[in-house]
């Protein structure tokens, strides 16, 4: 039966059902249960935004509060993964990756390769990302490109509750390290989510709207903004394909190329800073592979090359909005 669930409920349900199905799945992170040093207050927090609330009651010590030391608990999760468990570690905000990045990029990402395929690291690192939450420059970044740069990491970014549940279950069952992004501004958005377990395969982009005049490629929070732009443009007679990449490593370029071969026009929308971003990557690949199909220059709509501002007025215009996306599409179509 399908019900409307919010994205944080969908993430919670995926963790709950996979823990019930597979005893090797454990969940760990800062304050995901009661908060360290708070005996007698189990399940008080459920993470800073309550996403894991209720899990410790159902699954006991398989839901572990950790010390406030990312390098320790992310390292422990990766070690546990190599030793037969399937840990889901919550890094809280992705902005904290700096203190545990050696474990991620130089250890977890390399084990399969350096041990000749004999080691597997089935760890999931969940992290909140993105701007619009009034959390300032150190808690609002879109650091996806840093992870897609590293071979050996898989990078997942759902834009809605249905995808979040299916992609998280797929991530837990995957035998490689997966960085699972959750956009703070999407937690309350609701969609139909099946009760049972299901998986969405990696590297399968979702064509969320079909148009034919121009292609918009994006992920995460800007999927809905791109759809809003496409609705506005449809009233002007411009019909857009809107592609939600869903996974950034591996990435489904076939769907993008197929669409651009038909439309000849591409707008890449990315909440990350522009240089070496997902938008830059997709633009370069399309230009290299099917230059002859392009009818206009590729355009990117991204955040500026600055930290995320704390001023609400500035933060709002920092994130690519429907207006900017629509005007970029108009520019490609005018050519």
């Amino acid at each position: 039966m399908a019900r409307n669930l919010s994205m944080n409920e969908a993430v919670n349900e995926a963790l709950d059902q996979e823990m019930a199905r597979d005893p090797a799945v454990i969940v760990m992170g800062e304050d995901i249960s009661g908060g360290t040093g708070a005996p007698g207050e189990d399940d008080a927090w459920g993470g800073p935004l309550g996403v894991t609330k209720g899990l410790s009651v159902k699954h006991g010590d398989r839901v572990m509060d950790t010390p406030l030391s990312e390098s320790a608990f992310i390292g422990a999760a990766i070690g546990a993964a190599c030793s037969g468990l399937r840990p889901v570690a919550e890094l809280m905000f992705v902005d904290f990756m700096g203190v545990c990045f050696d474990e991620i990029f130089n250890q977890a990402a390399k084990f399969r390769y350096m041990f000749g395929g004999k080691a597997e690291t089935p760890v999931v690192i969940r992290c909140m990302a993105g701007a619009g939450f009034r959390a300032a420059a150190q808690h609002s970044q879109m650091l996806t490109p840093i992870f897609t740069h590293i071979p050996g990491l898989k990078v997942v970014f759902p834009s809605n509750a249905y995808d979040a549940k299916g992609l998280l279950i797929q991530s837990i069952r995957d035998n490689d390290p997966v960085i699972f992004f959750e956009h703070k501004n999407l937690y309350d958005t609701k969609t139909d989510v099946p009760e049972g377990l299901y998986t969405i395969p990696f590297a399968e982009a979702n064509v969320v709207r079909e148009g034919g005049d121009a292609t918009i490629v994006t992920y995460g929070q800007t999927v809905q903004r791109s759809l809003d732009a496409a609705s506005t443009l449809a009233k002007e007679g411009i019909e857009c394909d809107v592609i939600d990449l869903r996974t950034l490593s591996p990435i489904d370029m076939d769907t993008v190329l197929e669409s651009v071969e038909e439309t000849g026009r591409l707008v890449c929308v990315d909440e990350a800073n522009p240089r070496c971003s997902i938008a830059a990557d997709v633009s370069a690949t399309v230009t290299q592979e099917i230059f002859g199909s392009l009818k206009a220059g590729v355009r990117m709509v991204t955040a500026p090359h600055t930290p995320v501002p704390f001023s609400p007025a500035l933060e709002d215009i920092y994130i690519p909005g429907a207006d900017r996306i629509a005007s970029a599409v108009r520019q490609t179509v005018a050519n």
């Binding site: 249905y162 299916g166 099946p194 049972g196 377990l197 299901y198 998986t199 969405i200 064509v207 079909e210």
Partner: peptide, 16 residues
């Protein structure tokens, strides 16, 4: 056979 029809079948087929 449009996008929604295919997506509906995929939603079913993805279930465990």
């Amino acid at each position: 056979v449009n996008r929604s029809l295919v997506d509906g079948v995929l939603r079913y087929k993805r279930l465990d």
